[in-house]
């Protein structure tokens, strides 16, 4: 059994093998792998005894459930209007320069993905970015770069 299959099996035991438990299982795979691979989808379908198409249909519906490989740290910068007005473009520009990737890409070492997201719910403290589940409100291009440099040091 591969690591993914083991993870899926374990999560299916924890949450239960009914269809209604599909989201928490997908989310557990996401936390561990940062994306839902084809292998994971097949394993989940097997555990829950539903079609792989159903698993793919659900996973691909949700913006945070990427079905393409993502970096270990997924950066999402809010792009909705108030963050836009407060300078999210400059924040994204600074991160693109630092990581040497464009929006939507992964760094070649697999450490980071840089994405935009719709309203993250911090409109009074924009621009805001999420790194995995951590939130960073009121970032500037400089402070965003500092945050990423901390991540670079740690891992």
């Amino acid at each position: 059994m591969t690591n993914i299959e083991e993870l899926v099996k374990e999560q299916a035991e924890v949450h239960g093998k009914e269809r209604k438990n599909l989201m928490p299982i997908l989310q557990a795979v996401l936390r561990s792998e940062r994306y839902i691979s084809e292998e994971a989808m097949v394993a989940i379908a097997k555990e829950l005894d539903i079609s792989t198409a159903d698993v793919y249909g659900t996973a691909s519906f949700y913006t945070f459930m990427d079905t393409k490989p993502k970096g270990k740290n997924v950066i999402r910068v809010c792009k909705t209007i108030t963050c836009h007005m407060k300078g999210k473009d400059a924040v994204i520009g600074a991160l693109e320069d630092l990581l040497k990737i464009k929006l939507g890409e992964n760094t070649s070492d697999g450490k980071f993905s840089l994405l935009q997201a719709n309203c993250l719910g911090w409109c009074h403290k924009g621009p805001v970015m999420l790194i995995n589940d951590e939130v960073y409100p009121e970032v500037t291009p400089e402070s965003a770069v500092e945050v990423i440099q901390e991540y670079l040091k740690q891992k």
């Binding site: 599909l22 249909g57 519906f61």
Partner: peptide, 21 residues
């Protein structure tokens, strides 16, 4: 998991049932 439409009450329930929202 990042879907605005799931704030709609029945979409939310579909999502809770493990389906597309």
């Amino acid at each position: 998991s990042g879907a605005y439409v799931c704030g709609e009450e029945t979409a939310l329930m579909e999502s809770m049932e493990g389906k597309r929202g």
